[in-house]
Amino acid sequence: MNDFLIILIKTCVIYGCLIGAAALMTLAERKFSAWMQLRYGPNRVGPWGLLQPLADGVKFIFKEELCPDGANPWIFRLAPILSAVPAMLTVAVIPFAGDVNLFGVDCGNLSITDLDIGVLFLVAIGGLSVYGVILGGWASNSKYSLLGGLRASAQMISYELSLILIILCVVAMTGSLDLRAITEAQNTGNPLSWNVFSQPLAFVIFVIATFAETNRHPFDFAECEPELVAGFHTEYSSMKFALFFLGEYCAMIVMACLTTTLFLGGYSVPFWEDAPWFVELGSFCAKAGFFAFLFIWVRWTLPRFRFDQLMHLGWKVFLPLALANLLVTGAVISLA
């Protein structure tokens, strides 16, 4: 009973934090973009505009729900859910910190669950989010949506390939699919044991592939405002539209967490092997926060790629590089 309660509380807290972080991310996106363009960004709602996501949420709830003529209503309704739910599910296996001891109660490790096949789970569930995009685009009965959905699914599938190959390199080095084991292998107190130093090429490819995987600039072919109005969510309004965005921002946060876990030693603190859990959590949040910021930073720096350039980069550059990287990693491991 007690265990059940602890897991319930952990789940509520982690999901609350994820949704809160996604909401803050929408604000951060607008704030940072404004600062980079010498503007202030939202600063009217609450102190420093902190309540802006709340105001946006209320606005979304009161907007009219539209369903275009000729659209398949059930799939049209299913798509936003399919886009948001997988993105939120994947956070379940991310290890945020080590053993938590709160008010004398041992709450176990700070993650919802430590699956033995955490990486596999994450990749499998994360891959489902393609369905949200393509079903949303197809069910809308609009050519812009369809094109956006098609492009997005082509892009996500082609980049998922290199993404998984890169994850395989890390998995091969650690010898485990458990994200906590991967973190613990890097948690030696020495930052040089982080995977980013042993796998620099893999790190670069992984970060770029996460941008493509989450449909962010410079690879946001799912939306592509100047060409496709808004891509796959052109016909969506109200909370359905908000769900797509929630999914997108949750996916970004999960990807930032995953990059941290795989390459930057997760919650490990430099030069402090047995740090208390809150220091570990702080270390994790700082690293993941940086990658979340990188998503925004890159968006407001780079122009969008052309679609053929994207495909060229994915299939002709990243795939061979990732394969070669896996080959070299495997060779080094078997020789050493």
Binding site: F32, L38, R39, W300
Partner: peptide, 24 residues
């Protein structure tokens, strides 16, 4: 691409700390 991208990122990062031009 990567060195040029880093150059671009450094420009946008520096811009964040410049005085804002918006009139409140």
């Amino acid at each position: 691409y990567l060195p040029e991208i880093l150059r671009g990122l450094s420009i946008t990062f520096r811009k964040m700390f410049q005085p804002k031009v918006t009139r409140q």
